[in-house]
Nucleic acid binder design. Structure first.
Lengths: 250, 250
DNA sequence: TGTAATTCGATCAAAAATAATCATTATTAA
DNA sequence: TTAATAATGATTATTTTTGATCGAATTACA
């Protein structure tokens, strides 16, 4: 059994149980404990797992290089349902913006096989769509490792050079009063994408609706379609402001 | 049995089993193990499969990060030695360009802990440096999934907006006559980075020196320093053209 | 806290696989 | 046909992988 095979097995077991012991692994792979120990060290060096005494643990998904692809993610079902609904509106030949953030990221799985062009500043989106039917335009600028996204004035300039039929955006909070972001950088990108698109989709799971955040960066007028699993009386108010609301259920 | 026939058979078996052993293949094809080994290396160079000890694995079966642990990459030692040498010249506070390509990628491991700014169009470089001391500026434009890099006119415009103290570039081939690239896109980016840098480092393992490729995109005048493990009489000629040559040994 | 039991890291040796070299055979070009 | 070129195979030297062993470090637990 080669190193690669063992590594695969180890990662599988890690995925299933969250942690593994060297004894187990040695038994399952037929290799000696010394070898397993060596495997674990090289894998740990590549940040594929955390080394513990006598075994290994799954790398915290926060630290993993590229992944919102994490099933422990909050509200994942809501986000998936929202994105599935939104993806129905995406047609062959479309040019779309995809915002950074964990919600918009979930759109990827539903558009992989569509022949469209995606303009994005989200590194996970790029990684996810890299070997798919989608052609990608990556927005350039300063990389923010925490958000796994590109920001800054160069990014802004880049965005306004393009034009898309649809933009799929996320925010930190949305109320009747307006849209809220966690940072100016994000707000700036979101605004720029909106200004360059014919139709603006706002993807918000229920936890975002009615919530405010530190920066109110715009009112609701720029939003055309709100896709959400929120279902309170406020929905009517959004609609009265001229926003089409796609309500999804889980 | 010709190479093509064998390659076909190998891919079939790979498709069926996910992995193959050299012994098997030698038996099934009637070729010697030496020949199979040669077949596998060329196929691995074309990314048709992953080379393992004693055999090969299907590319798609491999979990991506494991492939980084794969030492089957061609000329890896030369590339590492070259990059280690080149990295010695990088000082705190530097702003540097890093080209796409497998050679320049190897620079990452040696600069992770330096407080510098890296401007790059290479997605693997971004992933590698994302959670390090390095701050990253990602060049925007069209993503080429095969090269895992960003190209196009937008990329060019992005590059020329910045200025760096050093550029670490790769080429497909280098001779006394000039520099050769595999595509115009690459050449365009390489040229742009060179034009915006004070000092241009060319990173070339021995297989690149003396080799030409389909596009000669410039003469040698733009190169300041050639870092290579090549050690033939041609080195003197490079030096006579005013290029400083850093010779590395393995 | 101190002691026993694990686990780890380093070093070594054996086995397997690979790379390098050279001779031989097939293929192609002149 | 003959010479040049490329592909293959055999042989040898080198490298890689693996497992064993032993002192040091870490953990468990009495």
């Amino acid at each position: 059994m080669t190193f690669q095979k063992r590594a695969q097995k180890i990662l599988e077991l890690l995925e299933a149980y969250g942690e593994v012991e060297i004894r187990q692994l040695a038994q399952k792979t037929g290799a000696s404990e010394v070898t397993i120990r060596r495997d674990l060290s090289t894998m740990a060096a590549n940040k594929l797992l955390y080394r513990t005494h006598g075994g290994a643990m799954k790398t915290s998904d926060l630290i993993k290089p590229v992944s919102f692809a994490n099933k422990a993610e909050v509200n994942i079902k809501a986000k998936d349902a929202i994105c599935k609904k939104a993806a129905e509106d995406i047609a062959e030949g479309d040019v779309i913006f995809i915002d950074c953030g964990s919600t918009a990221f979930r759109l990827c799985q539903f558009i992989k096989n569509k022949k469209i062009k995606v303009i994005t500043n989200s590194l996970p989106v790029v990684n996810e769509l890299q070997h798919s039917a989608v052609s990608i335009n990556l927005i350039g600028g300063e990389v923010n490792p925490n958000r796994q996204a590109v920001h800054g004035s160069m990014a802004h300039e880049h965005i306004v050079r393009y034009r898309a039929s649809k933009a799929f955006l996320g925010v930190d909070g949305i109320t009747i009063e307006g849209l809220y972001a966690g940072s100016e950088h994000e707000a700036s990108n979101t605004m720029a994408m909106a200004s360059q698109s014919d139709c603006i989709y706002m993807l918000c799971d229920a936890s975002k609706v009615g919530k405010t955040s530190y920066l109110k960066f715009n009112d609701l007028s720029m939003v055309n379609i709100l896709v959400t699993n929120f279902s309170g009386p406020e929905i009517k108010e959004f609609e009265s402001k001229g926003i089409a609301v796609y309500s999804v259920r889980l």
